[in-house]
Each structure stands twice: as structure tokens, then as C-alpha cells.
């Protein structure tokens, strides 16, 4: 049916086809939507600039303030240490969960169950109050003599409680992420490695984990970004990370909103850095999973520039009469 219609519309025989010009389809809906969004954006920008209550001067003054920067550094430290702790312990838990020993599997399952079930804020307060349950921590033979002993309070201070709370909580989530990654690797890869006689540890580190990383990285970065912001919860321990520092300052100066904006800007900056790192890490582990690697942002910029230049050059070269 359409074929016949097309044929009826076809230019008469003898028309030189290279003369036919293409007219783009009109899309008025798209234009309207674009205009509406542009107006909305202008309104937002206008209110941000003209409303004096945002107090941008105050925001700017506090953004690089020493106590704020120290708070940011504490936030970074908390995130990095708990991410490493969480994923290290999480990997162990994931391997236990995939082990043949029923006890190891059960313990791993139980750990995830408990630490995912209890709210983080509760866990943090529990760790902070550990000294009430155990006044001292001993190193020695199980059920036997003790060689060394330390005061719990001196070992688990605010920082220690925050690391323990965040790290152990994170491990429960990381375990599932790592396990999903390992399960995502094709069974044939294990078999090929086994049939070649590649040693067990090498099978994991060289064959399975690099492929599992493709699945692990996006979710893991999600977790790390969540952790960055999640560290703000340790303000309940009065530990001087970014959010606690900000709340102390606005408690003193009553400049609540500008200080919240300061904190928000820092969290956005930190998250952006992690997102950029994620892009390159994913690109690294994409080796072999895609035929050609996606370009880095720099390569793409350079490619766009050269393409644009050559387009400009070719249009200026062309004779305006034939156009």
C-alpha cells in the first residue's frame, strides 16, 4: 500500500536525484518544551542571584574557612577508611558465602542479616558505648590466659566508633555487591582456568575478579558516594566532620541557610570527583568487554574540535553558487 503511494509520489523519470533536497520534519512540541524549560531555568537563576537571603557573601567567606576544610578532610578520611574496610571485609564475606563450608556460609549470611537490619545510627551509638559492656579488650588464647589488655575507651574513641560503625555496616552491603560480581562471571571462565591448571589464587585475581569488576564498579561507586554523604550521620557522636562543623557554626552565628549551602557545595564537589574517577575505572575494566573503548572526555573534546574545524573549512571551501 505504502509502496504504491511512494511510487505515485516519486519524481518523474529522468529527474537527477542529486538535485532533490531534504526538508527536516517540523517538531513544534519540542520547541514549546524547550522554551518552557528555558524560562524556568531563568527564573531559578534570577532568584538565586537577586534574593539577598541566600547571602552568597557569607557562603563564599566560609567555603574555604579552616574549620570547614578540616571538616571536609575528616569526611574524606572517614569515607576512604570505611570504604576500604567495608570492601575488604565485604570481599571476605562474599567468598565465605560462596564457600562449600556450611558454617562459613551461615556466618556470612548471618552477618549480612544483622548489620543490614540494625539502623546505622543505632550501630554507631552501640559501638560508642561498647566500653559500658566491656571495660577492657584482651589479646590472648581463646578461653585461656590474656597477653595484653587495653582500655576500651582509649581504643574506641569517637573516631574509632565512627569507623567501626560505618565500616561494619558498609561491609554487609559490599559483600552482596562483590558476590553479585563474582556470580556474573560466566561459569565457562572458571572451567577454562581450571582446565589450564591455573593456580587457584591466580584464577581469582587474574581471571574472575577483573571480569567481576565490570559489575562491581558502578554499584560500588554508588555505595562510596552514599558513604560520602552518609558520614554526616556521625554528627550524633559529635565528631568534627563536614556536617557537624557546619551545624556548630550556624548554631553560633544563626546563619543557617548559607552554612547549609556551604556544606552542599562541598558534598557536590566530592561526589563529582568520585564520579570522574568512576568513569576512568570503568573504562579500564571495559577492556575486552567492548570492541572499542569509549573515548576519554579529553579525547572526545579534541575529536569534536577537529570535526568542527573541518566542517567550517569544508563549508567555506564550497562554491556558494552550487550550494
Amino acid at each position: 500500500m505504502t509502496l504504491l503511494e511512494n511510487r505515485a509520489d516519486a519524481p518523474p523519470a529522468g529527474t537527477p536525484y542529486d538535485r532533490l533536497t531534504v526538508v527536516k520534519a517540523k517538531n513544534p512540541g519540542r520547541w514549546v518544551a524547550t522554551a518552557v524549560v528555558a524560562v524556568l531555568l531563568a527564573m531559578v537563576a534570577n532568584s538565586l542571584i537577586t534574593n539577598p537571603r541566600w547571602e552568597w557573601g557569607v557562603v563564599w567567606a566560609y567555603l574555604g574557612e579552616v574549620s570547614i576544610v578540616e571538616g571536609v578532610w575528616m569526611t574524606i578520611k572517614l569515607t576512604l577508611i570505611t570504604a576500604v574496610l567495608g570492601f575488604a571485609l565485604g570481599t571476605v564475606l562474599a567468598l565465605m558465602r560462596l564457600s562449600r563450608s556450611p558454617l562459613l556460609r551461615a556466618v556470612s549470611w548471618g552477618y549480612t542479616w544483622v548489620f543490614r537490619s540494625v539502623p546505622l545510627i543505632l550501630q554507631l551509638l552501640l559501638w560508642y558505648n561498647l566500653a559500658y559492656l566491656y571495660q577492657s579488650l584482651d589479646i590472648g588464647i581463646p578461653f585461656g590466659p590474656s597477653f595484653a589488655s587495653v582500655e576500651t575507651l582509649s581504643l574506641i574513641d569517637k573516631f574509632g566508633a565512627a569507623i567501626l560503625g560505618l565500616g561494619l555496616h558498609q561491609a554487609a552491603y559490599s559483600a552482596e555487591i562483590v558476590r553479585a560480581g563474582i556470580l556474573s562471571v560466566d561459569q565457562g571462565q572458571h572451567e577454562a582456568a581450571a582446565s589450564l591448571g591455573i593456580p587457584r589464587r591466580r584464577q581469582s585475581t587474574k581471571i574472575v575478579l577483573p571480569q567481576a569488576m565490570r559489575t562491581i564498579v558502578p554499584t560500588a561507586v554508588n555505595e562510596i558516594i552514599g558513604l560520602f554523604k552518609g558520614t554526616s550521620i556521625v554528627y550524633v557522636l559529635a565528631l568534627g566532620e563536614l556536617f557537624y562543623t557546619v551545624s556548630v557554626i550556624y548554631g553560633r552565628t544563626q546563619r543557617v541557610l548559607p552554612m547549609l549551602v556551604v556544606a552542599a557545595i562541598w558534598y557536590v564537589v566530592l561526589t563529582t570527583v568520585v564520579t570522574v574517577i568512576q568513569y576512568y575505572v570503568e573504562r579500564y575494566y571495559a577492556k575486552g568487554a567492548v570492541r572499542t573503548l569509549p573515548p576519554t572526555p579529553l579525547q572526545r573534546l579534541r575529536g569534536n574540535l577537529t570535526a568542527g574545524l573541518s566542517r567550517v573549512r569544508s563549508t567555506s571551501d564550497r562554491d556558494p553558487v552550487t550550494r
Binding site: 560466566d186 565457562g188 571462565q189 572451567e191 577454562a192 582456568a193 581450571a194 582446565s195 589450564l196 591448571g197 591455573i198 593456580p199 587457584r200 581471571i207 577483573p210 571480569q211 575494566y285 577492556k287 575486552g288 568487554a289
Partner: peptide, 26 residues
């Protein structure tokens, strides 16, 4: 033991129906 078994496997070469090459290696 796993280790001895892996040593024995090196005496066999196995070619799979679905190749099972390691995709992240050249």
C-alpha cells in the same frame, strides 16, 4: 588436592564448544 589436580590438568589440553577465551586478555 586441588594443587595436584591442577598439575595433572596441565597434561590435558581442553578446547570448549564456546571457546571460553578470557575476554579481558588479548
Amino acid at each position: 588436592k586441588e594443587k595436584e589436580l591442577l598439575r595433572q590438568r596441565t597434561r590435558f589440553g581442553f578446547v570448549f564448544q564456546s571457546f571460553n577465551l578470557f575476554p579481558h586478555l588479548t
